[in-house]
Computed example of a mutant assay.
Amino acid sequence: MSKAALKSMRQKIRTLRVRTRTELSLGEIAKWLNPIINGWLAYYGCYTRSALYGLCRHVNMTLVRWARRKFKPLRQHKIKAMLFLAKIADQYPNLFAHWRAGMIGAFA
């Protein structure tokens, strides 16, 4: 996987502006992002799965930013937001496609 491919995938996540979509629930975001992430995991993951760790970390940190915008108590607490998403990932490990692949947590 080239650096340019990783850069374009991260750019795709940024252009979707997930972090600003606070009107959506986490399940709705999962339905929105899963086809995209599944495609990347299927195409690039069959050769070098470890190359996708950085991308999955980027997606997880985008979810942390979303949680910090959506929930006021998490606004000033990055670590609490990470723990909040880790708890959700423990309860619903099949919610996101990259969580199903074992890439859970902010530091996946």
Rank of each mutant, 00 (worst) to 15 (best):
Met1Thr: 15
Met1His: 15
Ser2Asn: 10
Ala4Met: 09
Lys7Phe: 10
Arg10Leu: 08
Arg10Gly: 07
Gln11Met: 13
Gln11Pro: 00
Ile13Arg: 06
Arg14Trp: 09
Leu16Ser: 14
Leu16Gln: 09
Arg17Leu: 08
Val18Ala: 10
Val18His: 06
Val18Asp: 12
Val18Asn: 12
Arg19Asn: 06
Thr20Phe: 02
Arg21His: 02
Arg21Cys: 04
Leu24Val: 11
Ser25Tyr: 03
Ser25Ile: 03
Leu26Asn: 01
Ile29Ser: 00
Ala30Glu: 10
Ala30Pro: 07
Lys31Ser: 13
Asn34Gln: 02
Asn34Ser: 03
Ile36Trp: 07
Ile37Val: 09
Ile37Lys: 02
Gly39Met: 02
Tyr43Ile: 04
Tyr44Gly: 01
Gly45Asn: 04
Gly45Pro: 05
Cys46Phe: 12
Tyr47Leu: 09
Arg49Met: 10
Ser50Gln: 14
Ala51Phe: 07
Leu52Cys: 01
Leu52Val: 01
Leu52His: 02
Leu55Gln: 01
Leu55Arg: 03
Cys56Tyr: 04
Arg57Asn: 12
Arg57Leu: 11
Asn60Glu: 13
Met61Glu: 14
Met61Asp: 12
Thr62Lys: 13
Leu63Trp: 15
Leu63Asn: 10
Val64Trp: 08
Val64Gln: 11
Val64Phe: 04
Val64Glu: 13
Arg65Asp: 13
Trp66Gln: 09
Ala67His: 14
Arg69Ile: 05
Lys70Asp: 01
Phe71Ser: 10
Lys72Asn: 09
Pro73Leu: 12
Leu74Asp: 06
Arg75Pro: 00
His77Ile: 07
His77Gly: 07
His77Cys: 07
His77Leu: 06
Ile79Trp: 12
Ile79Pro: 01
Lys80Trp: 04
Ala81Ile: 05
Met82Gly: 09
Phe84Cys: 09
Ala86Met: 14
Ile88Lys: 15
Asp90Trp: 04
Asp90Ser: 04
Gln91Asp: 15
Gln91Met: 10
Tyr92Val: 08
Phe96Ser: 02
Ala97Leu: 05
His98Trp: 13
Arg100His: 09
Arg100Val: 00
Arg100Glu: 11
Ala101Thr: 10
Ala101Tyr: 05
Ala101Met: 08
Ala101Phe: 02
Ile104Val: 05
Ile104Cys: 06
Gly105Leu: 04
Ala106Arg: 14
Ala108Val: 13
Ala108Trp: 14
